Simulated assay, not measured.
Amino acid sequence: MYLPPLRIPVRTIGARTFDFSRRVAVMAVVNRTPDSFFDQGRTFAFDRAVDACFEAVALGADWVDIGGAPFAPGEPIPVEDEVERVVPVVAALRAGSDVVISVDTFHSEVARRAIEAGATVINDTTGLSDPDLAPVVAGSEATLVLTHSLAAPRTAYPRPHYDDIAAEVAAFLLDRVDRAVAAGVPEERIILDPGHDLNKNTLQSLELTRRLREIADLGFPTLAAVSNKDFIGETLDAPREARGTGSIAAAVVSIVNGARIIRMHDVRASVDAARMTEAIVGLREPAYLKHNMGDVND
């Protein structure tokens, strides 16, 4: 059984405390964009986005990740448009729940206003492309997710090449940790994401999943954002709407290899998968014991 050597396993994020030496957090995904890669605008309307957030909480999500701009190459989303998309949803969710709220953004101004509205995590998928983002997080109590990606925001990166993908991703992430710490973000408020599919082809994402321990060995809680990614679709020859089972498999393998947060679309199935995996590897007790525990078999 592999347990990642976490430097600071117990983390308080907003109103919630996680012991990542014994617990896997499930992060739900809510995208308030008209062109998100998976839900294709299903939660773009404000009311639908808010409802999706509260539904995720009711289904057992520990965390809700709210995004207002897709990662995929395309025209930049103006900062004010991104703010208008995410901040009202953050405020509405915070008013009714103590769940961890992260905002998927690389803009420091979006981060600042989201934190003011109640966000407790900034999830930067661009590895600090905005030099002002880390200082904004440092000036708050929020946690920062540092993600490996190579391209400038919303630009293409054709034919990515790695000589040793796990080693190169680890080196990149440690460099970003150094930058964040230098800006004032303490280590106990840093999480690392190797960035499945982000400037990586399917073979590279599969290898990164197999070798995820090398990222977890860095000592920070590792986030695996594997849900419905293209590497699952290409592996299984599955369209976006048929990647759920493959996503659960990838999440479980990631947990076994050290991930302590999984970013998932299907919250109910993901919570069950995480809790079952925790029990199998000996991190939690079953909810109850009855089968073959008495004189009569039930």
Rank of each mutant, 00 (worst) to 15 (best):
A45F: 06
H161Q: 15
V181L: 04
V50R: 13
L198C: 05
K290D: 09
A250Q: 09
V79K: 14
T120C: 01
F46I: 10
T202N: 02
H161W: 15
K290Y: 07
A25W: 01
P34W: 09
G118P: 13
Q204F: 13
A152F: 00
R263V: 11
P158A: 14
D104W: 07
M264A: 13
Y2M: 09
A269L: 07
V89M: 09
V26S: 05
P131C: 11
A114T: 13
I165V: 12
F220P: 00
R23E: 15
A269Q: 07
E188V: 03
D175V: 04
D193S: 13
V99T: 12
T43V: 11
A58Y: 04
P194W: 02
M264D: 09
I248E: 01
V89W: 08
E82G: 14
D104V: 04
C53S: 08
L289E: 15
L150A: 07
D132P: 04
D178W: 02
P186D: 15
A225G: 12
M293Q: 12
R32C: 13
A151W: 05
A167Q: 13
V177F: 00
L223Q: 06
T33E: 03
L198P: 10
A69D: 01
A269E: 15
N257R: 13
D266V: 11
S108A: 15
V256R: 06
A91N: 02
P135A: 08
L150K: 15
P239F: 04
P160I: 03
R113V: 07
D81R: 15
D295P: 14
V137D: 12
L212Q: 01
V121C: 10
T126K: 14
L223I: 02
N257P: 03
I248A: 05
M276K: 06
A61E: 07
D130P: 05
G67N: 05
E80S: 14
T126E: 01
V99S: 03
